[in-house]
Amino acid sequence: MIHDMQPDDIVGDFKEVYLQLYNSIKRRILYTDIETPYPDGKLIVSTTDLDGNITHVNKSFVEMSGYTEEELIGAPHSILRHPDMPPAAFKDLWDTVQKGEKWQGFVKNLRKDGGFYWVKATVIPNIRKGAVVGYTSVRRKPSRKKVEECIKLYPTLF
């Protein structure tokens, strides 16, 4: 399940926008300018089913997203979708992994408290006995130079 964001959960001054997510879900997003730095040496790992619903998260995912594991399991992965991310990036992601290939890109993720964090994400299909059964996403610390490039590029892709 995915819910509208609530002002009580937000830390700091926020802006409001409605985002159209997959499966015709419209979500109220409350977001701030507060960045959480990516922790050194850690990987953020999650798996989803074929529809993009979260089936597994590691401890770093929970810590960085601000949600509890219970809130995350079963929720669509787009619970992390930040309004500054161009829809074209996610279309490219899904087109790539549905072809059975690996996707890699720099992503600005949204936290439960309205803040954000940048990651270098890699998504691959999980192939078991010849069939794709889900997807694994692994995020690592991005280079700041690449993040600065994305901050300039992404607004031009809307």
């Binding site: 990987l43 790992v45 798996t47 690996k102 890699q104 890699t122 998504v123 691959i124 999980n126 078991r128 694994t136 996403s137 692994v138 690592r140």
Partner: peptide, 13 residues
């Protein structure tokens, strides 16, 4: 083991 292999695969590039 399959999960670990998938994870190693994501790190390989």
């Amino acid at each position: 083991t399959e999960f670990m292999i998938d994870l190693m695969d994501t790190l390989a590039t």
